[in-house]
Design a protein around this nucleic acid. Structure first.
Length: 803
DNA sequence: AGCACGCCGACT
DNA sequence: GTCGGCGTGCTC
């Protein structure tokens, strides 16, 4: 083949197609579809993906490929197809889809290098420019000071400077220093004999290479022979030994730290659940299973044994877990069972570590990958199963382009590989549960907890009553008594409060002035540590004033309770209890999340207080009390899933209590105790919740009865946003069928973020062939304005968040 | 997305 | 009459 069709790394409407390039003779035999290349594109060079090979091209003035970046395709044929499917399903560009499937380290970055065209005549140049070339003969434009850039551009235009476009590859393979002999054994023997007597260490080194003639890491060599680097360096200087670079994988997990575990005997329920999965694996067919099992019912063991079967068949497995629960606990279970066959991919790894784990998959050195959302694209070629744990978790939906849901990708790949997809959850999404009820998915049920521990008893406390009874603290009498009881017994407590910071808004009691973010339409949250008011959307901060900026009053009151305030209160009320607070503010540093959980596991603290990040997947045997300080924080969000999300959160966090021998109790504090999602979560009754919520969804025409698409428009000027959104809504109403509902334009739940107003338009539809073409038309129509003005229009098909 | 080309206003 | 503003169109 002489010609390659390439998707170039330029995410824009006009470049969202293939461009043809000549394949240089030297690569004619090696170049394959799915490889990355560097190609000339206009005056510059860009990275691209080869998506097709052919003999002839319509285009006459073809340019040749500049560079080949991969020895093997990084995108398999399957992933290339999947990429095209993603562009259709999420309305993204092909290049965005491809990049989403690869580790970020493989994405190119670009720079420009400037060189002198007349090095002998520096005086031609602007003074600012001259100083850069005093030591160097090439300067990276990215390193040039802002103030000097215009001088550079002037000299470039005058033709004194040459611009070279550089494509940088961020992916760095980690290497260690290696040593290898430069002579054959016979000669080494002779050299050793000629060595002076006192050079004993050097002789030892040579003797080593007589026995082991290959290359070896310098560090390892020194350790084995118990010598310093000096004698080795001496031999290198003599030209006897040569230095090499040995490529190694970064080791985010210490392999030896994982003790081997073996399969547990399954309970009868587990046995019943696993049988159809194993059968599907054996028959090599595709099916989607929804494994609905209460918290602590042993879903993970079913996963592990299913994977074991897959590995026995010589196939591979993908396990997706929510970002947040990819704790060492979870990794340990998989590494413990399958050892070095497991690769781990999650956001806690550096981009280099992720790249290394990915290469292990590509090189077929592992056959199981455990990871967050993007691990669903693991480049396995012989998949035997895909498992999505905690299927209902919102982190499976990507909130940037391409806005895909990992579940949909998993099912696409499951069909392609003819293998089962297993969705597991104690609180499945209504969408999945409805499909299981209809028989589209196969329903597997685990009703009993392992080791027969009972589901915790739940008390729902009406905080309005507490207030009427004169209790103005954030703890109800019941919760406080139970906390004291646990502290006396030396048992542990988990407290959930879905709000970080100290106080969620600050108001002047004299004039009612509330501090709001100057860039977003949202009140500022008070952070006690460093006494700042912070915006949780854009990060803006300002010092908390002592007096009201409006009326100078000193009656400033802090409303709303955040985790910081609770922590403060706890130290006052229960000074003997030690508290670990876990929220975005205490876990932002790398490894902090893990460290805090370890401390709690080691019982260095009795109370774990945190936001929803503590609700999932944690398993501490000594936790016997879970307190939900305010169950309603999520309930009143303008989101049709708010009841579902509340039910899920309450159920998940309740599941943290009493997982082992000690029985657990849960106290849920709320201002709306009568709400069905709180009542039914208290009764652990998913089925009743499902019934009730389905009725609400049907009535209001929401999923799973209707599909939803969300168009969000943002711009600095409110009038512009409203005008554009209105036009879009009108256009859609006119184009789409009568059964389709177009809502809006309405202001987004957060109407202004980072100085940009946001409006949206929601579309609810069942069958709407005109939707995708219409949305494409809109994106086309506003493409120019989106490019040059600050207008932005995003389309989210099947959104998970309405924000 | 860049970058070049090209057509109109304010300056040596 | 030129320098430079950013509208328009192209990139194999």
């Amino acid at each position: 083949m002489k010609i390659a069709s390439v998707i170039v790394d330029v995410a824009a409407k006009q470049t969202d197609r293939t461009f043809d390039y000549l394949i240089p003779e030297k690569w004619a035999d090696v170049l394959q579809k799915g490889m990355r290349v560097i190609v000339p594109f206009g005056p510059r060079k860009v990275q691209g993906f080869v998506v097709g090979l052919k003999e002839h091209s319509e285009f006459k003035k073809l340019k040749p490929i500049v560079e080949l970046l991969d020895p093997y395709p990084v995108l398999t044929e399957e992933l290339l197809q999947l990429g095209h499917w993603l562009t259709e399903k999420t309305l993204c560009y092909a290049i965005s889809a491809f990049q989403a499937m690869l580790p970020a380290a493989m994405k190119a970055t670009y720079d420009k290098e400037v060189r002198l065209l007349y090095p002998e005549d520096m005086s031609l140049l602007h003074e600012d420019v001259q100083q850069y070339f005093k030591q160097e003969d090439a300067v990276l434009l990215s390193g040039v000071h802002q103030d000097h850039l215009s001088s550079f551009y002037r000299d470039i235009q005058k033709g004194y400077l040459e611009v070279i476009y550089i494509v940088k590859n961020r992916a760095r393979k980690k290497t260690v220093k290696g040593i290898k002999p430069l002579y054959a054994a016979v000669q080494l023997q002779q050299l050793a004999e000629q060595m002076p007597k006192q050079a004993e260490k050097q002789k030892n080194v040579l003797a080593f290479f007589l026995k082991h003639p290959g290359e070896i890491a310098l560090k390892e060599l020194c350790e084995q022979l118990n010598v310093t680097q000096a004698p080795v360096k001496a031999l290198v200087n003599k030209g006897v030994l040569g230095e090499t670079n040995i490529e190694v994988y970064r080791q985010p997990y210490d392999e030896e730290a994982f003790g081997k575990t073996s399969a547990f005997p399954l309970t009868e329920e587990q046995e019943q659940a696993i049988t159809p999965i194993l059968q599907t694996i054996e028959e090599a067919k595709h099916d989607v299973f929804l494994m609905y099992g209460v918290t602590g019912s042993g879903k993970t063991e079913v996963y592990l044994q299913s994977i074991d079967q897959v590995l026995k068949e010589g196939k591979e497995a993908i396990v997706l877990v929510p970002e947040i629960s990819l704790t060492p606990q979870m990794v340990k279970r998989f590494k413990g069972r399958f050892g070095s066959k497991v690769a781990v991919l999650h956001s806690g790894l550096s981009s280099g570590e992720k790249y290394d784990e990915w290469r292990k998959i590509q090189r077929k050195e592992v056959s199981v990958v455990v990871g967050a959302r993007s691990a669903v694209f693991a480049p396995f070629q012989n998949l035997g199963i895909i498992i999505i744990d905690e299927e209902h978790e919102t982190s499976y939906k990507q909130e940037e382009t391409p806005r895909y849901h990992a579940r949909d990708v998993a099912i696409y790949r499951g069909k392609h590989h003819e293998c089962p997809v297993v969705l597991g959850s104690a609180t499945p999404t209504l969408e999945s549960f409805a499909r299981a009820k209809k028989g589209v998915y196969k329903l597997l049920t685990l009703r009993k907890r392992m080791n027969d521990s009972a589901l915790p008893a739940v008390d729902i406390v009406d905080m309005r009553e507490e207030l009427r009874g004169g209790n103005r603290s954030m703890f109800s009498t019941l919760l406080f008594e139970k906390m004291q009881d646990r502290l006396e017994k030396g048992e542990q407590i988990v407290l959930l409060l879905n709000k970080r910071g100290h106080s969620s808004f600050v108001m002047c009691r004299d004039c009612g002035y509330v501090h709001t973010c100057p860039h977003c339409e949202i009140s500022l949250t008070y952070h006690r540590y460093n006494h700042l008011l912070k915006c949780h959307y854009c990060g803006y901060e300002q010092p908390a004033a002592v007096t009201c900026p409006e009326c100078n009053s000193e009656h400033i009151r802090y409303f709303g309770t955040g985790t910081q305030k609770v922590e403060e209160e706890l130290t006052k009320l229960l000074p003997e209890a030690s508290v670990i607070r876990m929220d975005v503010d205490t876990t932002s540093r790398k490894g902090a999340h893990e460290r805090l959980l370890d401390q709690f596991a080691e019982q260095k603290a009795q109370i774990l207080l945190g936001t929803q990040m503590i609700a999932k997947g944690l398993d501490f045997p000594n936790v016997t009390l879970v307190g939900v300080l305010s169950a309603d924080t999520m309930l009143h969000l303008p989101d049709f899933r708010s009841s579902e999300k509340t039910f899920q959160l309450l159920t998940q966090v309740s599941g943290r209590a009493g997982r082992h021998h000690l029985p657990g109790e849960v106290v849920i504090q709320t201002y709306t105790p009568e709400h069905y999602s709180i009542q039914l979560a208290g009764q652990h009754d998913f089925d009743a919740f499902y019934q009730q919520e389905m009725m609400a969804r049907k009535m209001h025409q929401y999923p799973p009865f209707y599909y939803v698409a969300l168009v969000t428009v943002s711009h600095e000027e409110l009038t512009k946003v409203v005008a554009v959104t209105d036009k879009i809504a009108q256009f859609l109403r006119q184009k789409l069928s009568n059964n389709t509902v177009v809502l809006g334009p309405v202001a987004s739940p957060i109407a202004k973020v980072k100085d940009r107003y946001r409006y949206q338009c929601m579309i609810k539809y069942k069958l709407e062939p005109e939707l995708i073409p219409s949305l494409k038309f809109i994106l086309d129509r506003y493409q120019r304005e989106m490019q040059q003005q600050q207008l932005s229009i995003t389309v989210d098909l099947q959104p998970y968040s309405m924000m």
